[in-house]
Amino acid sequence: MSEISTAAPGNSSDAPADRRARPSRRTDRARPRRSIRWTSWILGGGSLLAVAAFAWPFFVGAVPADAQVAVPIVAFALIPALIVALALTLDREMYTAKTVALLGVLSAVGAAVRIAGAGVGGVEAVFVLLILAGRVYGARFGFLLGLLTIAVSSLLWGGFGPWTPFQMFACGWVGAGAGLLPRWQNATRQNSSGQRIRATREILLLAAYGVVASYLFGLVMNLWFWPFAVGSGTDISYTAGADPGQNLASFALYSLVTSTLTWDTVRAITTVVGIALVGPAVLAALRRARLSPRR
């Protein structure tokens, strides 16, 4: 049995004693850490840049006339690049067995929900999962879950296109936002009725966030696509030279008729109903996954 230690090529270096003395990293019990690390700065900065890329129609006026043609192209290149950058940043943190397994399995569930939803008249229920998982496992996990859910479902179903990176980002934000919602740490150790009130309050908070997220998602997705969807030559078209007020009004009307009144409202209702129906049980299941299982 002595070949065991030398069996694999990766085994050449022995663990130095000083490394052993160091406290082991306990990332697999990942609790949201309060301290702000450099990755937080990357994530925040990346998100800000992405916001700018989403809102490119409103920035065109600020660039010199010669460069205006390049603005949409830059925006289109920026979003996938940011996704890769943020994915690279988060990849190291996610590299534990439990996180990877949960991420993979949950994004499969999300993709299945999304594809099944497309089959029943575009009822988008995927936000339910993103919000609940983001709430329990934190903003970073929620962000990645959003990215992967869209990636998997697009590749599987075939709805893959120039919009996919934008969708990935927007869904990532939905999951991340749920992770950033306030938590009431048990200030007082409550009895069972107190716990029930807290659970109800949590569901209400998440449902309210679901409504906000649904409409914001629609708005953000409309924003970058608006000049392409309408083209030029209509009265709600994006006009590069016009004053921001007029463009904003055009966009508002475009957004209203395109999705706010229809898809976004359906999505908001689906999300609220979904969170109310399965929220408590799914939150419990996700939280139990962090606890000790049965023996």
């Binding site: 994915a87 690279l88 988060l90 990849d91 190291r92 996610m94 590299y95 996180t99 990877v100 397994a101 991420l103 993979g104 399995v105 994004s107 499969a108 993709a111 990645l144 992967l148 990636a151 998997v152």
Partner: peptide, 11 residues
């Protein structure tokens, strides 16, 4: 990107 790739394989 091994963590994310592995997640996708699992998905």
């Amino acid at each position: 990107l091994r963590a994310i790739s592995r997640s996708l394989v699992i998905a």
